[in-house]
Write a protein that binds this DNA or RNA. Sequence first.
RNA 1: GGGCGCAUAGCUCAGCGGAAGAGCACCUGCCUUACAAGCAGGGGGUCGCAGGUUCGAACCCUGCUGCGCCCA
Length: 874
Amino acid sequence: MTEKTPQQHTDLPNAWNPADEEAALYQRWVDAGYFTADASSDKPPFTIVLPPPNVTGSLHMGHALNHTVMDALTRRRRMQGYEVLWLPGMDHAGIATQNVVERQLANEGVSRHDLGRERFVERVWEWKAEYGGKILDQMRRLGDGVDWSRERFTMDETLSRAVQTMFKKLYDDGLIYRAERIINWCPRCHTALSDIEVDHSDDDGELVSIRYGDGDAAIVVATTRAETMLGDTAVAVHPDDERYAHLVGTEVELPLTGRRIPIVADKHVDPEFGTGAVKVTPAHDPNDFEIGRRHDLPMLSIMDERAVITAHGPFQDMDRFEARPAVVAALREQGRIVAEKRPYVHAVGHCSRCDTVVEPRLSLQWWVNVEPLARAAGDAVRDGRTKVHPPELAKRYFDWVDNMHDWTISRQLWWGHRIPVWYGPDGETVCVGPDEQPPTGEGWHQDPDVLDTWFSSGLWPFSTMGWPERTADLAKFYPTSVLSTGYDILFFWVARMMMFGLYAMDEAQPFDHIYLHGLIRDANGKKMSKSRGNVIDPLDWMDRFGADATRFTLARGANPGADMALAEEWAAGSRNFCTKLWNATRFAIMNGATVATPLPAAEDLTEADRWILGRLAAVVSEVDELLEDFQFAKATNALYHFTWDELCDWYLELAKVQFSGDKAEGTRAVLGHALDTVLRLLHPFIPFITERLWTTLTGGESLVVAQWPSADALPAADATAGARITDVQKLVTEIRRFRSDQGLKPGQRVTTRLSGPGFAALAGHEEAIRSLARLGDPGEDFAATASLEVSLASGAATVEVDTSGTIDVAAERKRLQKDLAVAEKELKQTEGKLGNQAFLDKAPAEVVDKIRVRRDTAAADIERITARLNSLPS
RNA sequence: GGGCGCAUAGCUCAGCGGAAGAGCACCUGCCUUACAAGCAGGGGGUCGCAGGUUCGAACCCUGCUGCGCCCA
């Protein structure tokens, strides 16, 4: 104990300051080319394409979570010897970007129409150059190991070429067509929207019942959108509805218009709802449109693209929300309002980009016939070519792809991929491929519309690799390995990529695995939103706790498919973990921890050394297994507990004792090796601090390209050593509990004599036990004032203590009584089971044996504790 | 209206057929020479309710209640 361990100097500062080091570490990785994929490599490929963030967007917690997942996946595979490609980029976000630039123009007092199409698109590119893609810099702060040399943008020339190629291919195969249908129209963005770009919410509205016609011919209809009655071209009832049978085939006068409209019978009318009669507005309602088609009704549009009434009469030029009460008032004046219900809560569609209430509108648009594509997309998951994690979410995927409606792909915007179709003077329609010349001459013009952004991002897994060219990247890196995204984006994007990928790439699925993470919520499980004011900014966390702590917090909460609650305390906990790792490694280096291989032979190691190596091997296996199954939360929690509780706590304390023993070299090697391994395992999650520590500890080039640990490389677990250390831990813990109950200060050395058969088996660990429990050696004049017995696997150990004063008998009695109560409960439970013949007959033998052992242990404990209690002075 | 999921410690969540767990929060004592962003000890749960299956149920089944999500 007198010989002092020489302490080495390290170049590690006293504390880890992420802000000082992260940027430089990241730049070093990029400069070294670690993230640049090599298509000519012989290594097996591992590919992830980054879900392209919106060019207008900035990093939020959802990104941070998804990026943490992808970075962990790719960093681990890289360490495992794969040729890793993680491909970054952005999408052009048609509506969102156009909105941003239009707002900018509005501030200058001009509209896009003032500028003209060509100049406007130039302005968008200028905007992108100046303000777009902030998120890419923010990704660097997170530590994303993406291949920047392959960064892509959906409006890049090659990706635009892919879009045009795909359009042409679908068109030629008859899977793209043009048709006039009811679409979701945003009167603010002035464009069509697909079904999934519409968010439904339950809003307060009104339900107005209107009487059409008079006398015997009168019929009452109810509507939440009274103004649309101006466009009614029929009233429909169910064919079996006897109430109205006599009216079917007759006509009724439509109030306010003087028009006469037919009463038709249609079996899609629900006779139970309202009066059982519905007004039919084929040009402004999808269901009415279908009724209109079946009965060959006129399709009367009564609003323009701004949702302003165009129908002649007193309501002309009124906005739809102005027209609604005006129409109701006019009807009321005529005595035609039968009933009014306000508020009437009903589902209303809103534009997902600007929240304006969507107006169903009859309009000529381009469509994708999704039926064959969606079937293939479903089949790829059904037959296991693509696996969904967690598997429960596959059902939701099937529900979607198996019931998908045709997809409106044209958008009335200027920013995006223009539809490659030209119309001729005599009604010709020509679809032009990327290498073809569009027809020229009098009367030819291109379709003015652009394609839905999801059309181009649906091609992302292969357009980014150069499709339709047969590039080396495609050959090497497609199909991609994993697609990681939130489950909320399953329909928007994942299904589209599946459809397009299978179709364009000869039935090759775009990814082997789909990992779906949950949504980020606040500490109370509420959705984060600006209006709630509960948004946590990942950049703020990175500033205050470091990128590693931010990532580790997200990884520890990442249970597949499950939402995750976040609070600052979580990040602080992760920061504390990083600090612990830092201090432990610094301590190890100061004490000469080594990483030379191979490890010393078993006989040159202590039981503590062999125990921690066994635990290390178990953790390596466990973490590997969990990560193969996308169980990030469980894997990081296993690492957290092993690192903190076992390595940095028990083993490090044991190592302190061993440094002055005769197996100190072995201890230095085991400590160094264990830290080396743990840093490798943690690197995919907390890359910065592990890199800094590992390069200092080992002198290696970089953890990014270090080898992933293998449990096979570690010595087999030593069961005896494991049992001994477990006993040491139990003995130390029991002594500490006694000390605490007796009010003995943690720092105070307490003179103690250890004995008994249980202790005899641990004799080699006496110094460690004395150190960990802060016990002094008994001198000649040792006189115990108290004693306790601890039952260990190796038998009972006796601990006699000189507390240098009176013992707190009441505290000691309380402690023993508590132990007694536990043992008695255990005895009662186990005896109950063993007294049940059915249990003895039917339960497996090993379960019965286990219960017997527990019963015997409990009985022995009761006897021991009772004796101890009786011996206490009263 | 159709479908799915969740109800376990104050909070957020693991556990999913054989002894109730973690993180944070809380209480007590400690600046014990890696670490107070720390150390040691401690309290706290009839596992939503009611039935059923089983030798045995937080875990499987049925119903109910309360939340949440998706689709229409």
